[in-house]
Simulated assay, not measured.
Amino acid sequence: MSPLTLAEVTALPAVVPLLTAARALGLSRNTAYRLVNRGDFPCRVIKAGDTYRVPTLELLVLIGADRATLDAVLGTNAIK
């Protein structure tokens, strides 16, 4: 499966499953879980029960989305 494009990531809901975040970063399932278990996933991971979720905004920042993209996702001039 190919990594998600920036347009696909911006269309995601506010919080996504770990494997969706891994796909956006081009990581395999095994690598994603290994990084989470070591505490080394490259952005914040929220554990909810027995599942992991990642904030989409943090993915966008991590992959280097520009200011205009972030503003479009959050609303114009949301980030100061």
Rank of each mutant, 00 (worst) to 15 (best):
A32D: 11
Y52V: 00
L19Y: 04
V36R: 12
V54G: 02
A48D: 06
A68F: 01
V45N: 01
A68P: 02
P17I: 05
G26V: 12
T31N: 11
T51H: 10
L60R: 01
L25I: 03
Y33M: 01
V15C: 05
A11C: 07
D50Y: 13
R29N: 15
A22H: 14
L57R: 11
N37I: 07
G26M: 10
Y52S: 02
V16P: 00
R29L: 07
A68E: 14
R38M: 10
E58Q: 14
P13K: 10
A24E: 05
C43F: 09
D40Q: 05
L18S: 10
Y52C: 02
Y52K: 02
L19R: 11
L27R: 15
T31W: 03
L35F: 14
F41N: 04
V45E: 00
I46S: 05
G64E: 04
Y52F: 15
L57G: 06
L27D: 11
A32W: 13
R38T: 06
R23D: 09
E58H: 13
G39E: 05
L60V: 07
N30F: 11
N30Q: 15
A48K: 05
G39C: 04
L18H: 09
Y33I: 02
L18R: 10
A22W: 15
V61M: 03
R38S: 12
V36E: 13
V45K: 00
V45C: 01
L60Y: 04
G39F: 03
G49H: 12
R44S: 09
R53T: 05
G26I: 11
K47E: 11
A68C: 03
F41A: 01
L27I: 11
V61F: 03
V45Q: 01
R44A: 10
I63Q: 03
A32F: 07
I46F: 04
T51F: 08
V16W: 00
I63S: 02
T20E: 15
I46E: 09
A22E: 12
A24Y: 09
G26C: 10
R38G: 03
I46N: 04
T56C: 00
A48F: 06
L25W: 06
N30L: 12
V16A: 01
V54Y: 00
G64K: 06
L60N: 02
V61D: 00
L27W: 10
C43I: 15
T31C: 09
R67L: 03
L35V: 04
R38H: 14
L60M: 13
I46G: 01
L59S: 06
A22T: 12
D66L: 09
V36N: 05
R29T: 15
D50S: 13
C43A: 10
A22P: 11
K47Q: 15
A14Y: 06
R23L: 06
P55D: 10
L19D: 12
Y52D: 01
L62R: 14
I46R: 05
A14L: 11
C43G: 06
A14F: 08
R38L: 14
G64I: 09
L59P: 04
G26T: 08
L12C: 13
R38P: 04
R34M: 08
C43N: 05
A21E: 12
C43V: 15
T51K: 08
L18G: 03
L18M: 13
A68V: 08
I46V: 15
P42R: 10
P13G: 07
G39H: 04
K47P: 03
A48P: 01
Y33C: 01
L62Q: 10
N37M: 08
A21T: 12
L18A: 15
D40P: 00
